[in-house]
Amino acid sequence: MTDLHLKEERTGSELLFEGRFLNARRDTVRLPDGRSATREYVIHPGAVVVVPLLDDGRVVLERQYRYPVEQVMIEFPAGKLDPGEDPLICGQRELIEETGYRAREWALAGAMHLAVAYSTEIIHVYFARGLEAGARQLDQGEFLDVFAARPEELLAWCRDGRVTDAKTLSCALWLQNVLSGVWPLDWQPAPPPEAADNRGP
């Protein structure tokens, strides 16, 4: 089976906005039927989200105010990739910075495209276990609460609408299937600690 009958070909591109974090572009494309159309989208550097598993069965979560939606959101720890940064190193770094936890083992669960209609963002999903608590290293201007919850509590919040963050909803599905044994993970030892203490090039 081929996808050629669905693909769009870029014929022009215009930079609409260039920020410190995000860029926006407007492209002209040729549709499969030969007609032209425009596509406006955001270029995102990519990110990592971590599902941290405590030894007592609870998961580590955060409460953080998100300005665009003007709400405090319940989320799993996450952060954007630096240029050239390995997603695993990013996940390890973000977990330490935001929660203070270091993990002995990590497992890549998969990836998700957050908003395929208007963004290039891809989020790599990692699970972490064997957590050891330590001091947080929050970025300047970053404010968040860290807490733990039972998986059934998190799933109830997803059902009831208390959790609406897309990556956390997706991770809750992963968590449910991992804990039930339906989606096994390939656990690996953590990278050397110094790797997570330095940002990418």
Rank of each mutant, 00 (worst) to 15 (best):
I123F: 12
R162L: 10
P191W: 08
V69W: 03
T99L: 08
E8H: 14
T99I: 10
E98K: 15
V29I: 14
V146N: 04
Y126C: 02
E8S: 07
T99S: 10
L54Q: 13
F127W: 05
E121D: 11
Q140H: 09
C90T: 11
V163A: 06
L22K: 12
E9F: 13
A172Q: 00
A166S: 13
V182A: 13
S13T: 10
R93V: 06
D3F: 15
E153T: 14
C158V: 14
W157N: 01
G84H: 08
S36Q: 12
H44F: 05
R58F: 06
L16D: 03
T28G: 03
R199H: 14
Q64H: 07
A149T: 02
V163D: 01
T28C: 03
E152V: 07
S36W: 05
L95Q: 03
R102W: 11
Q64T: 10
G134F: 08
E14N: 01
L173N: 14
V49D: 03
R136G: 10
R136F: 08
D139R: 15
K167D: 05
C90P: 00
Y41M: 03
A115F: 10
T168N: 06
Q188S: 03
D56I: 12
L155T: 00
H124C: 03
P68V: 07
M1I: 06
N198V: 15
R150N: 06
Y118E: 08
R25G: 00
A78R: 09
V29A: 09
A135W: 05
I89W: 11
L179M: 13
W174H: 11
L185K: 02
E132F: 02
G84D: 07
E94I: 09
R30V: 06
H113M: 11
E62F: 03
V182C: 01
E18H: 14
F21K: 12
F17E: 08
P52M: 11
S119N: 04
G79S: 08
P189R: 04
E70F: 11
P192D: 13
D55Y: 01
D56E: 10
A148I: 06
S119L: 06
R93Y: 05
V72T: 15
E142V: 15
E152S: 12
K7T: 06
D145M: 07
Q188G: 00
E152W: 03
E9N: 10
Y101R: 02
Q137W: 01
G46T: 06
I74T: 14
W183F: 15
E75Y: 06
F76G: 00
V49A: 15
I74L: 05
E105D: 12
E132D: 10
A24R: 10
F76M: 09
A156Y: 02
F143L: 13
P32H: 02
D27P: 04
M1H: 05
V59K: 02
A111L: 11
A190I: 10
E14W: 07
P193A: 09
A166N: 11
R159V: 00
A190W: 01
N198F: 09
